[in-house]
Design a binder for these strands. Structure first.
Length: 607
DNA sequence: GCCGTTTTCGGCCCGACTGTTTTCAGTCG
């Protein structure tokens, strides 16, 4: 198995954990954690960079030492320092850090005083009351450990964005009803639209004496109160979701919202920026000495730091601060920019509603076109269409389009990409469609090389428009397939076809980093609902959130285009010349894509 | 361990809450 960035990130993460237990310099530990994050997030493969002889220490947070360790892992598959640390510290001790309330110092103390090296030993010691005897520990801490064990701790569970959002909306409505509360908003990864949310961060401004903290902690769904003070409280809901509430005065609202929205690396970068300017930034405001110079709004803080306003989805310290300084932030795509949806199902396969109902619902969501893309025959379980049924649906859609007002149905299919990369329906029927959406629905577990080759072959098919849910992941249920995404994105560029960002909250696939890779390569992304009922067009907002996290603007998204501009782009992917289309050629790539396609056909014929 | 229009050494974001303390360290976000 070739070493990928995530492998090296894991090595650095473990080194950081072990160094932490050893009580090493915290900034040294942070250097490893920062490097792990950089490696995990960057689109390019460091292995490939090394093969090309590029300098790794040009990467942020990577110096000579870490560059050397990266090369060592790539070349040998292991890291001498990690091996040494593993010998010095018992394996399993890092698992103790997962218990809330236990940090490196206490884990170290437990080891030195009681000889505890594993979770099991810790539980035994806690049950026997030995933990409470240790200096600095008490009955409460001992109980904390037992409680954590009961809840099967260690798994740090995350919730899907859409589910967390519903909970947040309900809590915010309750908070707004508490006397004295002026504003109540959500921050954290929810506001940044991360695909999953670890906990909710809520913020209120409230008058003095408002009972907001007490009411919050006494809520009906509250299982446990972790902490409760005058300005801050943490609870755990019955669902296991942790919620943190913070109250600040109105003059600090913007600074506090900024702080509570994060991300942590973004906050650190801003605070450093403030520091360099002789200022101090905290959740109460931006200060010069004792004087607050900004803080009532987020915009006031950014402005005082010499930055353009940064949208929450971009606040990850992935270059947004530099871009804001030189006015180079993208105008991000918005839900209202979407003019259509290119992936949906009706009763004909596994959807719940008729074509007409779906069309009307799409129009009600402000869309001007909707592609009908039923499953193909291989998915017999969901009544996938064979060529005959698809041909009849084509006629049905033509008839329906003649009657429909204000919305156009496009004729498509979600054809299965078979294990060898061929498509599940004959060319003759695929060629009659407006677009072909291809997707994998079985054998998600092929080895990287084989899975990648499977996708590349499918995308080379003469009728192939959009690769749907490219990684195949289902959050919490199925991991992403192991594919070489960069090659897939480059293939899409060569071939002139498109990648889907499936907006279903359990998928959100492409992920944000892949979106950014597509943008960098000039490949358009289609944000689609994959709606199986009229209710699911609302899910488009989650897809838009991911796209925004991937820095996509309206021009980077396929279905922001008007229908007349979209048609030639789709026609080119279907092997039809764009010149056959009556409407004006779009600004983007259609002629070039057609040219590439002709070359491709030549190759196919000669091959 | 990284980094540098002050620095190749000496910095590295900042504050709230808890538990176990007799004034604060540890943890967390």
């Amino acid at each position: 198995m070739p070493i990928v960035n995530a492998d090296i990130a894991a090595v650095f993460g473990e080194i950081a954990d072990l160094l932490e237990l050893q009580g090493a310099n915290p900034f040294r530990i942070r250097a490893y954690r920062n490097a792990a994050r950089t490696l995990g997030e960057m689109g390019r493969s460091v292995r490939a960079m090394l093969e090309r002889g590029e300098d790794l220490d040009a990467l942020p947070g990577i110096g000579a030492d870490l560059a050397g360790k990266i090369a060592e892992v790539v070349n040998t598959g292991s890291c001498a320092q990690l091996e040494r640390l593993r010998r010095e510290l018992p394996p399993g001790m890092t698992a103790l850090l997962a218990i809330p309330g236990l940090g490196p110092k206490r884990v170290r103390t437990l080891h030195d005083e009681l000889g505890i090296e594993t979770l099991e030993q810790l539980l035994v010691a806690a049950r026997e009351g030995r933990v409470g005897q240790v200096h600095g520990f008490g009955a409460k801490t001992q109980q904390l450990i037992l409680d954590a064990a009961q809840r099967q701790l260690a798994q740090d569970r995350r919730f899907k964005l859409a589910a967390a959002s519903q909970v947040a909306d309900a809590l915010l409505a309750e908070l707004r009803a508490v006397p004295g509360v002026k504003q109540a908003v959500a921050g954290g990864s929810l506001r940044r639209m991360r695909d999953t949310v670890g906990d909710l961060d809520l913020l209120v401004t409230a008058g003095r004496g408002s009972p907001v903290m007490q009411r919050f902690a006494a809520g009906a769904d509250v299982e446990r109160v972790l902490s409760q003070g005058a300005t801050r409280a943490s609870i755990v809901l019955r669902s296991g979701l942790q919620v943190d509430l913070r109250a600040v005065p109105p003059a600090s609202f913007g600074a506090a919202w900024l702080y509570f929205t994060g991300s942590k690396p973004h906050n650190i970068a801003l605070r450093r920026l403030a520091q360099e300017a002789g200022l101090k930034l905290n959740e109460y405001g931006l200060f010069r000495g004792d004087r607050r110079i900004a803080g009532a709004t987020e915009a006031s803080v950014y402005q005082a730091l010499g930055l353009d306003f940064i949208e929450p989805e971009l606040r990850e310290d992935r270059g947004e601060i530099d871009a804001a300084r030189v006015h180079r932030l993208p105008r991000l795509v918005q839900l209202a920019d979407l003019r259509g949806d290119l992936h949906s199902h009706s009763k004909a396969s596994d959807g719940h509603d008729t074509l007409e109902a779906m069309a009307n619902a799409a129009r009600a969501h402000g869309l001007q076109y909707l592609a009908v893309t039923e499953h193909s025959k291989r998915l017999a379980l969901v009544h996938g269409l064979d060529a005959g049924r698809l041909a009849r649906q084509i006629d049905e859609i033509d008839a329906l389009n003649a009657r429909l007002q204000g919305i156009v149905l496009l004729k498509g299919v979600e054809v299965d990409i078979l294990e060898d990369g061929s498509l599940d329906l004959p060319d003759a029927i695929l060629g009659r469609l407006d677009l072909v959406v291809g997707a994998i629905h079985h054998r998600f577990d092929l080895p990287r090389e084989q899975q990648t080759a499977r996708l590349l072959r499918a995308m080379d098919h003469p009728h192939f428009s959009i690769l749907a849910h490219p990684s195949g992941r289902l959050i919490d249920e199925r991991p992403a397939s192991d594919i070489d995404l960069q090659r897939v994105v480059r293939k899409a560029r060569e071939r002139g076809c498109f990648l889907e960002l499936n907006a279903h909250p359990a998928r959100l696939d492409l992920g944000e980093l892949a979106c950014r890779m597509a943008r960098d390569e000039g490949v358009l992304v289609s944000i689609d609902s994959d709606a199986h009922s009229t209710l699911e067009f609302d899910n488009l907002r989650w897809g838009v959130g991911q796209a925004r996290r991937g820095w996509l603007g309206p021009a980077d998204v396929l279905n922001t285009r008007k229908l007349e501009d979209l048609r030639p782009l789709l026609a080119a992917t279907m092997g039809r010349s764009a010149s056959a289309i009556t409407s004006a050629a779009p600004r983007l790539a259609a002629p070039a894509a057609a040219g590439r396609h002709q070359q491709l056909r030549k190759r196919v014929r000669s091959g």
